[in-house]
């Protein structure tokens, strides 16, 4: 159900997916690319990461809120059929997590490509040496977790809205 609901709102979903992906890519790039040790510069990068994370959360929030409000009647209906609040909440969260997961996968691929390109410029062929990629695994995992965490964070409020919606909404006629 979460999957097909994503399909219905493809346009906006894609856009959000893009922001999540970009965010993860950016994060992974910064984690892997050689950045100078200058504390001022590090701080600037940190600020940029935070900003991109915030934008991404806002994007997810918007998409999920739209997804919930557009389905007011549908959610009301399934509540009439006996769905518990927790079920409604879970299905919204699941939809969002699906989005986050896909975004993270794309973002990680993008980030790796970006890092390799920049590495090629800086270190030449040395980029293909194993030593260049130390600790890559946990970096990828961090980026994926951030992607997933982001969408979960953004979906929490819309999910609560959906769960608390009174089933009476279903009784309303055509909008």
């Amino acid at each position: 159900m979460a999957l097909s609901s994503l399909k219905l709102r493809m346009g906006r979903t894609l856009l959000t997916l893009l922001t999540v992906a970009a965010c993860c890519a950016f994060l992974l790039f910064l984690l892997t690319a050689p950045i100078s040790d200058d504390p001022a510069e590090r701080q600037m990068w940190g600020l940029m990461i935070t900003l991109s994370l915030l934008v991404s959360v806002a994007g997810v929030l918007n998409t999920m809120l739209m997804s919930v409000t557009q389905r007011y009647r549908e959610i009301g209906t399934i509540k009439c059929l006996g769905a518990l609040d927790s079920f409604v909440m879970l299905s919204v969260m699941l939809e969002s997590a699906l989005l986050g997961l896909t975004g993270a996968v794309f973002g990680i691929i993008g980030g790796l490509v970006l890092s390799t390109l920049v590495g090629l410029l800086e270190a030449g062929a040395g980029v293909f040496a194993a030593a260049y990629w130390t600790g890559l695994w946990w970096k990828v995992i961090v980026a994926a977790l951030v992607g997933l965490g982001l969408t979960t964070l953004g979906a929490a409020f819309p999910a609560a809205v959906a769960a608390r919606m009174p089933p009476v909404e279903a009784m309303r006629g055509e909008k």
Binding site: E74, K79, C80, L84
Partner: peptide, 23 residues
Amino acid sequence: GELAWLRCRKIGYIFQSYNIVKV
């Protein structure tokens, strides 16, 4: 939760605009 249980087992709803889940 108990109301949800009641709606689920004791009551069946038919709506003016059908309200079939579209997907």
